[in-house]
């Protein structure tokens, strides 16, 4: 028999070792998240999945569930924090949805829709970032990187390649690739790599596929992200 905790008043069962996120997902309850994918080790950097446990904020993707926990997630207080975090990610990079080929399949955008984000207040940083179109099958648009490091993990832990890494510090943190030239073409990245499938935004893009599915008919055009389980992202 498994133990239970409550999430927004709903009783959730969990098995020993499960995180709150995992247990909630199994129970069909959506907690917003960007840097978490079920098949990779959670690291808790985006903080979108922050919940309140017994009155204290913590990342639900890294916190193990314990019997009797009282967890709050879908409250106005927490969702307002999440909207601010979303907005931080938007202003930190250059996220121009109308010009982005991932629009409609983008988790950042879809999560913002889910949270009803529509009142910007922070000033934009407009960082100078580059694109890398050197690879025959993949191009990289660093303007949209949210530093979730899912590609770093997927390349290292699934592909066994270490194509990606994080560099810099603080607001100057950035994604880099594993080559002397700094170009993706000079790495051993292949379009079939797991790392090419996990980007929640529009950084790692497969060439010649951009508009196969028209805008308006994409994953999160059809259903809100809260109703789309994580796995279909692979087939995007």
């Amino acid at each position: 028999m498994s133990d239970t905790f409550t999430l927004d008043g709903k009783t959730i069962s969990f098995t020993e070792g499960q995180t709150i996120m995992q247990a909630a997902t199994d129970a069909g309850v959506y907690i917003p998240h960007l840097c978490y994918l079920p098949e990779l080790k959670p690291h808790g950097s985006c903080k979108l999945c922050t919940v309140k446990i017994n009155g204290r904020e913590t990342s639900s993707c890294t916190m193990r569930a314990a019997a009797g926990m009282v967890v709050e997630s879908d409250t106005e207080e927490i969702n307002s924090q999440r909207r601010a975090l979303i907005h931080m990610l938007f202003v930190e990079g250059n996220h121009l949805c109308p010009t982005c080929e991932v629009s409609g399949n983008c988790k950042l955008q879809a999560t913002a829709y889910h949270l009803g984000f529509m009142s910007p207040q922070f000033d934009h940083f407009f960082p100078i970032r580059r694109v890398d179109a050197s690879h025959p099958d993949i191009w990289l648009d660093f303007n949209r990187c949210i530093l979730c490091s899912l590609c770093v993990q997927a390349s290292r832990d699934v592909d066994g390649k270490n194509v990606f890494g994080l560099s810099g510090r603080g607001i100057k943190s950035r994604l880099i690739v594993n080559s002397k030239s700094g170009k993706l073409a000079d790495t051993d990245m292949a379009v079939t790599d797991k790392a090419a499938q996990v980007c929640p935004v529009g950084v790692i893009l497969k060439k010649r596929t951009a508009f196969k599915t028209p805008i308006g008919e994409r994953t999160y055009d059809k259903k809100p992200i809260s109703e789309v389980p994580d796995t279909p992202a692979k087939e995007r």
Binding site: K47, M88, E92, I146, L147, R169, G170, I171, S173
Partner: peptide, 21 residues
């Protein structure tokens, strides 16, 4: 704090810069 934020998590990475500004 803005200078020393490691950049791992969103609120500190971006928030310390916003606060500084």
């Amino acid at each position: 704090f803005q200078h020393e934020s490691c950049g791992f998590c969103t609120p500190c990475r971006v928030g310390t810069s916003l606060l500084k500004n």
